[in-house]
Design a protein around this nucleic acid. Structure first.
Lengths: 338, 338
DNA sequence: TGTGACAGGTCTAACGTTTGAGCAGTCGCC
DNA sequence: GGCGACTGCTCAAACGTTAGACCTGTCACA
């Protein structure tokens, strides 16, 4: 690969002249002719600035890390997409880290930031994973933006409007005349689960309805968790006529389980879930879902990291625009009168 | 961040002594006492080698790029997961690039490699995207491994055993007594579609069956493509009793479309697809699918890039172990006698 | 007593870039 | 004709790391 030195030699000027011309620096005082010669030489040699040289000198890599616990979740795919788009537009590249049980978040982050591989990071800590080891890093003032989680005393986070999302789903079922509405939620420790729960409760309370004992399960966000939730909820003395599921994957599992056990959706049971995805419109019946703005979340998180890097400002953001959006499909129907 | 210089000062030795001790170099001839002092100083200062400094000196970044056209496909998620695991085990980190219509592969790759941001790349070119601009790069001898595609004259690629996968699905339907078996394939230009087609034909031919005109659609791999394929195939004069779908997402769409148009699966129509995923077991009926080893593909691709980087060798690999695996669920059933 | 071998280090250059400081020549102006 | 300002450059240091060359002191041995 050609270096500045090569270009300089070919153009017959000094390295600094080349550097300044190629950087379009105002401090580049060169004649038009020299400028032309330099540009041409660079073109001919296919010069590209060496990343390591530049990073060493400037202490910037123009790389942002994204650390997530589980790549296989469709949610992260959308998130990553948004992050990638925003980063590309701002001249950054995304680096992928993973914090699983073997390599806890602290270790991966420490490496990424400590070695100067990235200028900043977007982090989602796993629902189960304790934030141990993150403390030092967060305190160290490194540009870290947390998504779907919070850490006491740390500024710089992005969350979705989980409460509104869940409230919309619940209100939709209420509008259809349902009163016995149960809630299949994520794990108790989960940041989003706690927030989604608030939306469900708020809607029920606003409608003047009490929530019966055992009407909330907190099993998790996977399809299998959804299956288990259905079993548990339908075994209730007064089984619900509608269920709000806190996650689309769980809802898909729930739908399959309903089929398998002879529960007809939406005739016997209406199901609405939080988080839309292309899979939701290809179940049977297609799932009524609330679209959560994960793409926007990715963009916002990256924007936050860049702001932190470049201007130092840090903010905690809840994405309300675009707002969560209810998409009515056929898994919900008016309460059957009997 | 502490540098070698800081550690050296604290330990009262020279920078080179520190460098050698921390690198565990055999050329480090120091007394036990000095070694201890250096290690302790490094620990106290939380020394971490600076990435840029090291990269500049060694011309290695220990980073491998992964360039894919579309992050939202579940396929890539699995692939990425495998790539990530292999990279982490070998001391590399994954960097994510994206080659879409706005930023064609050549440009992204040129930047990644030309600027020395990565030591090598795993690339999947989009089905539709012409490989224009890739030629120079591939010819340049850079460590590039192509997945699910090939480029004339380029050594270094990884593919799945698409033919066997599709053959397994077709044979399964044949075993169930079906003879009118159609094939919903990907786009004509698609590398995998061409290969999957071979498996279907091979199985049909081996069974002594001719493939009627119009029994293969080549619409693509999305859910909507699957819906359209069903419409077209069932409009045939002699509609099939079974369909092999070249992609799980398309099969999910097809199932939903069947529901919507009153075709009962598997009573009226058996559906088997290539590529398993958690979604396949949560459709109704659950999908009979052939598990393709994308995770292994990710691992193998990264291993190939590393081999290329470290020893220079390049190979074209088709992953046959683990082999594609037929998973029978309820979307396929014996041909109804009438 | 001179010589080699060896232990235990240090010195120095180099990787490619950026950037503040400097320097030679020309011009305008008093 | 001397001074300041400007043009059009170059010099040199620095970022953090690695690695080959080199230096000094001690000891064994002939």
């Amino acid at each position: 690969m050609a270096t500045l030195g090569d270009v300089a030699a070919r153009a017959g000027v000094s390295i600094s002249a080349v550097s300044r011309v190629l950087a379009n620096a105002p401090s580049a005082r060169v004649s038009e002719a020299t400028r032309e010669r330099i540009l041409e030489a660079a073109r001919e040699l296919r010069y590209r600035p060496n990343f390591a040289g530049r990073a060493l000198k400037s202490a910037r890599t123009q790389v942002i890390g994204l650390v997530v616990p589980d790549l296989t979740n469709a949610l992260f795919t959308e998130l990553m997409h948004g992050a990638e788009d925003e980063a590309a537009e701002r001249g950054y590249t995304m680096l992928l880290g993973r914090a699983d049980d073997y390599r806890p978040g602290g270790e991966v982050l420490g490496r990424l930031i400590g070695e100067g591989r990235v200028d900043g990071v977007v982090v989602q800590v796993g629902d189960g994973v304790p934030t141990a080891g993150l403390g030092d890093l967060l305190g160290s003032g490194a540009p870290i933006v947390l998504i779907n989680s919070a850490y006491p005393g740390h500024a710089g986070s992005v969350a979705l409007d989980d409460e509104t999302g869940t409230r919309l789903a619940t209100e939709h079922l209420l509008d259809l005349g349902h009163q016995r509405i149960a809630f299949a939620n994520g794990l108790p420790r989960s940041f989003t689960a706690k927030r989604r729960r608030l939306g469900y409760k708020a809607a029920m309370t606003a409608a003047g309805l009490a929530i019966p004992q055992g009407y909330e399960t907190r099993l998790g966000y996977t399809a299998d968790n959804g299956r288990a939730a259905l079993q548990r909820l339908m075994a209730h003395d007064e089984p619900p006529t509608a269920i709000v599921v806190a996650n689309v994957n769980a809802a898909i599992g729930m739908l399959a389980q309903a089929r398998a056990t002879g529960i007809r959706v939406p005739d016997d049971l209406s199901v609405a879930c939080v988080h839309d995805s292309w899979t939701a419109e290809n179940t049977w019946p297609p799932l009524t879902a609330v679209k959560m703005q994960f793409y926007a979340m990715g963009r916002t998180a990256v924007r936050g990291v860049i702001a932190r890097i470049e201007t130092g400002e840090a903010a905690d953001v809840v994405i309300t625009d675009p707002a969560p959006e209810l998409i009515v499909r056929e898994s919900t129907a008016p309460l059957r009168q009997r």
